[in-house]
């Protein structure tokens, strides 16, 4: 039951998070640029592909299609988000997470909150990993 709920929470979170990014890839690209980490040549490609990886991983986790693989992808993405947000917080770089929506201006209210949220989600993901058996 617990694993089912975790899968549902993670799956829906990733599907929901991918939606705005798919709708406005240029806005998402601007947010990736704002992180100040990724080389210019990679920004558009990331903005166009990352949301679809989130979407597919979210759906396949919920639907039970290669759930362990989907969970690995989701956990890896969460670990990546944590590293990137954490790195920018440490160096005091102002940025807009763009996790769920793409605001026209200004920065997310609290990037520390985002970091904590992702750490929690990754925690859930790791718990689920322990319980989803390899078949």
């Amino acid at each position: 039951m617990l694993v089912f709920i975790i899968k549902l929470v993670l799956g829906i979170t990733f599907i929901y998070a991918s939606w705005h990014k798919i709708e406005d890839p240029a806005g998402f690209a601007r947010i990736i640029y704002g992180y100040g980490i990724f080389p210019g040549a990679s920004i558009n490609l990331m903005a166009m592909t990352l949301p679809f990886i989130e979407l597919v991983a979210g759906f396949s986790l919920i639907m039970g299609v290669y759930p362990r693989s989907a969970l690995l992808i989701i956990n890896a993405l969460l670990a990546g988000f944590i590293l990137v947000i954490g790195f920018n917080l440490l160096r005091g770089h102002q940025f807009d997470c763009g996790c769920f929506s793409i605001p026209s201006q200004g920065h997310a209210a609290s990037n520390i909150f985002l970091l904590v949220r992702d750490v929690f989600l990754l925690g859930f993901g790791m718990v689920a990993w322990r319980f989803i058996r390899a078949s």
């Binding site: 890839p25 679809f52 597919v56 299609v65 290669y66 693989s69």
Partner: peptide, 25 residues
């Protein structure tokens, strides 16, 4: 991590990339 997990990652990511390609094209 099993061989099936790795295959799954490959298939899911490939499917996502193909979908992204068709969507943006």
């Amino acid at each position: 991590m099993t061989r099936k997990d790795v295959t799954g990652i490959f298939l899911l990511v490939s499917f996502a990339l193909v979908t992204a390609f068709f969507y943006h094209s």
